[in-house]
Design a protein around this nucleic acid. Sequence first.
RNA 1: GGGUGAUUAGCUCAGUUGGUUAGAGCGCUACCUUGACAUGGUAGAGGUCACUAGUUCGAAUCUAGUAUCACCCACCA
Length: 904
Amino acid sequence: MSEESLVSKNLDKTYDPKRVEQTWSADHWNAFGLYHAHSENVLNHKKEPYTILMPPPNVTGSLTIGHVLNHTIQDIFIRYNRMMQKEALWLPGTDHAGIATQTVVEKKLRKQKLSRYDLGREKFLDEVWSWREQYGSLILQQLQRLGISCDWRRNLFTMDESASEAVINVFVKLYRDGLIYKGKRIINWCPVSHTALSDEEVIMKTQVDPLTYVRYALADQPEKYITIATVRPETILADVAIAVNPNDDRYKALIGKEAIVPIANRRVPIIADDYVEIEFGTGALKITPAHDPNDYAVAQRHNLPIISVIGQSGEMTDEFGYKGMDRFDARNKITDDLQAMNAIEKIEDYEHNVGYSERAGVVVEPFLSEQWFVKMKTLAEPALKAVEDGKIKFHPARWINTYRHWMGNIQDWCISRQLWWGHRIPAWYDKDGNIFVAHNEAEARELACTDELTQDNDVLDTWFSSWLWPMTTLRWKGDGDCNDDFKAFYPTSTLVTGPDIIFFWVARMIMAGLYFKGDVPFRDVYFTSIIRDMKGRKLSKSLGNSPDPLAVMDQYGTDALRFTVIYLAPLGQDVLFGAEKCEQGRNFATKIWNAARFLFMNRNEVFADDEEFGNMYVDFSPEISALGLVDRWMLTKLNQMLDSYHKAHKQFRVNDITKQLYEFIWSDFCDWYLELMKVSLQNCAEETEKKQQILRAVQVFETALKALHPVMPFITEEIWQTIVQRQKEESISCAAIPYSDPNGIDENALETIEFLKKIITECRSVRSVLGVPPSTISKVRINAFSEEKAALIQENAIYIERLARSEVEVGVGMEKPKASAGAVVEGNEIYILLEGLIDLDKEKARLEKEIQKVGGYVKQLEGKLGNEKFIANAPKEVVEGEREKLKAARLNLEKLTGNLESLK
RNA sequence: GGGUGAUUAGCUCAGUUGGUUAGAGCGCUACCUUGACAUGGUAGAGGUCACUAGUUCGAAUCUAGUAUCACCCACCA
């Protein structure tokens, strides 16, 4: 054995995930540019492209199990396709996360008793940039520990120059195309962040609030009144009308009259509008256009004035004595005051939905203001069509419904934010308030024919840059030019993301891709599972039920975490996750490690040195027909596994992939193949035969490792590197995973080994049930069903003898020994001779149980085959199959019964 | 109010086009430190596939309905 053999150095030790991860870290491979993609290879038609966009992680957050799942899936896709010899490109990046980042920095300032206004725009932005410098890449570093294989050279930040340029160009184009406009609207206002929000940034929560019935006296008959119901009594001060349904007989007489708003003592008209539901509440509705979008619409129709009583921080701004109070305090106070003046009829509990700001978690205030909007109808239509026509496929497909529904009811998108951190809106105003949208101030000046311009103070919604992500990551700048990367890698292949951002992001990227480049941004969208805790609750910081992935990686290993998360995540279902589940992944890794140790231990025994092995290994490619039975069986199993494996990949059934590999490696390879091999190795007289067996085993193992590599990159790399000496820059991550080879399938061998396995299992079972100690070697006599079977069993008796700890005697027409336990496998009777060891009652009980089981099965089959309709209607193969089954079962039953009889 | 999904072993979940004696992991029971592995091996116990009807020769699988749970969407104050 050569001194520097990696095998003896590494596989001698027990499995240590940390050491393995450090050896094959991202840093190691980055040095060789292993994950760099090259557009030339695609443009020269050398390789097919495969591109994935990383959904930019939130820079203000830290790594969660959700990230682990999402990025492991992406890494599996990209590694698989890289190994299938495509030009694989995974584009990483981060976005500036407008509100989230600004909030974090403002919070930090507040600790120093400063606000952003104290600093001013420029200094504040400096603060944010330096915060980002310090913390912005933290999450990417954490992701790197997962072993993800991105092309880090192409890392992009949404505020990088090229991306910013694209944002501005896109804004100007949409404005000039008439798809962006500025308008006065009721928008969702966050009283904490002091900014407008899009509809998607508002979370609706169901809650119970008091519904207050308030009396409004009629102006001409103060003793009479009209009662309205409201959950927001504080907005009474801003009432400008009472509305009733024109067809409501109760109120017809009042239409056109006036009522008096309590406290405000304002006379307001009673108007008729279809919008009012007769059935609901009292059928009369107060109209508060400044604080409710529906009321605003009513006010527009009826030319009503607009009165505002709530300010930007949610404080009252009225002239009736509540000024400066918080809106909720004012609500209570006004309720009390109304009560005192006997203006309240009753108060009921009322369950309704209230909008909360996604980031700040406070109740959103409907707020009348001037904002910028994108007209969505034009953009939505082709985007909907692309998905319905299958140009973009959703996995699972049911998300199309959700997508369709949203696209069909789409509202204009409010894109202006009253923040500082973000892309500033490229609009300038002259003294008279005329708007000039331009790529830069110089252009605006030209358009305006004046130098006295002020730029819009607002910035754009973060998603206004995110929706360009498929293009900006390829350094598209929003103009007509396309660079080589763009030509080679757009459209991208697969988007992996959570279904929670289907509207925020997925839908909008599709719109942008189609509108600006005339092509879809990606072909497939894989919606990941949502991770929950073991009780089914969402993971959240406040519940403290979110395991820290870094701690899990420390405890169980990264491969274990990756494997487990994928193993648990079927397509489109929620996943209940607890860190302890990673035991399964860790055990699997350990199993693989030990299998490798076993192989290399034998290798080192049989081969002179690494070199001899390496030379033989490279040239070793025997035909299946030249192999022994066990190897033919193994090869067949391997090819069957590869077949399902590639199919699972095609269908995006990621957890199927892990299940295939797990079963193959653990059950087929370790439990049976290696055990069988131990026997045949020991039985081999010739050295060359031994060598070939080991070469064969290593080859199968290597293929399995390659197939497993996308899921467990570290351990597979480590073992692969030790199989034969590799070059420094060589990696399993670029090795080719073979397709299933139809010539590598031998049904006969499959059948034979499965038959032998059954005999072995049956022997073990009998021994175990009868309490035969493992140390005892039992004598087994097999009365074979045919000469052919007898020969087969005789030929492979050695396996039965070793694996079932038995001595085998086989023939046709063998008699049942008196003191023996009996079992039947496919008509072959197995007698285990245990003179003096048999407990007659135990054996009887065992046989009776067995007979009952088989008897039930026979009955079931007889019933089926006795049904004429079944014979007439079922396909011939099925009927034939059932007949075979019955025949075999009857034979078994008969022989078992015979056995039982002989005991009596 | 509309939509989507779930319901299979004690627990967590697989089960692809209807034809299996319904599977896995964990847990449980018994035995085993046998030369890769006790983070292991062997054997075993454990299920009316939520319920009800229907389609079919045949249903965990298809259809309809019911129940429970979860999520998403929606401007009845």
